[in-house]
Design a protein around this nucleic acid. Structure first.
Lengths: 186, 186
DNA sequence: GAAGAACATGTTCGTCTGTACATGTCATGA
DNA sequence: TCATGACATGTACAGACGAACATGTTCTTC
């Protein structure tokens, strides 16, 4: 369960409310780990009960800001150091690719062109971010530098998928008239 | 819910039992979409009830093989053609990268080296598969060619992550003594 | 002063998912 | 013949997740 450690990690940067965290989760981590506010509030309650975070302040409109405790910081560090990475990744684009042979060739060409555009645009958007970070526009602290490293992975993955989508359009693997018309049932 | 369409897609290749499908899900799609057999059996029951698949044969040990119906084939094609791709992807490696600044620099170096090895090995393993496919060892039908295209995406993503992990080790972004020692609380 | 947007926190419900449990069959080889 | 491993299908349960519902506050701007 990574939401728990994601929240602790974000709170390690400084105090924040559930609302803040929901926004940051969407902005910073949304591409790799979507989280909705209901889960976040529930998890924050659990974390508080476990003593890993505590209420730092009450603000207007019922705002409750949380602060990470020493136990919380130790827990997120333990996770980073001791828990093995789960390397499975869910990616619908790739999942669908296994079934391309069922698609009409023209639909597929169009689909791949659309995918290429999407990944190209995402890569460029992330690259702009990365460049801004390199110019120090987001600070130069350890946290900003970790964000920079994560961003680089995002850029590279999106670039790789851009090139893949282009390659897939150009390859003769999908050139056959069989594609999309036949199924292999006997 | 993609399990549904994944099962239909696999059954479009030919009849299979729940056991077969569980194995194929793990082998072929496991890296991008893990599925356990309990879900598969439950979903198969639902698909049968919906008339998208039907029992093709009964085998030894209670084996039940399913066959996709015309309605099922239409449904999976509709999904491929009409439903927009969800581009969010879950990847713990990338998720963790946001919190690298909390790690001990030596642990981080070691972690990145381990990640690099993992992605390198995965890329190579997939590349061997891809080469075998290019030599026609897995058939040359439309289904084999779709697998080849999916495989190419896997290879490219794993190569991109290999290079990213190497870059991250070499970059001076993580060179500071602050890394892993300070948190940004005031 | 009123309206609307953004802030802020929650609950509810149904489905998805993973782990563990549970059962039984068939083939292989010691 | 007996043990083991692979085959094969399911149930039970708890936790995660997403969509929708629900409520109220504060700020801005007209």
């Amino acid at each position: 369960m990574s939401l728990r450690h994601g929240l602790l990690g974000l709170l390690a940067e400084g105090p924040a409310s559930g609302y803040d965290l929901a926004r940051r989760f969407t902005e910073a981590l949304g591409l790799v780990w979507p989280a909705r506010h209901p889960q976040i509030y529930i998890e924050l309650s659990r974390l508080e009960e476990a003593g890993l975070i505590e209420v730092e302040s009450h603000g207007p409109r019922g705002r409750k800001a949380y602060r990470i405790t020493d136990e919380g910081l130790a827990e997120v560090r333990r996770w980073l150091a001791d828990v093995d990475v789960d390397h499975t990744f869910r990616m619908e684009t790739l999942f669908r690719a296994y079934f391309f042979w069922l698609m009409d060739p023209d639909d597929l060409k169009e689909h791949l062109a659309k995918e290429e555009r999407f990944y190209q645009e995402t890569a460029e958007r992330l690259r702009v971010y990365a460049d801004a970070k390199d110019r120090g526009e987001w600070g130069t602290g350890p946290h900003a530098r970790a964000m920079r490293i994560a961003l680089e992975a995002g850029v590279r993955i999106n670039e790789a998928l851009t090139e893949w989508a282009r390659w897939a359009q150009e390859t003769d693997l999908m050139a056959s008239e069989e594609f999309g018309t036949a199924d292999e049932r006997k």
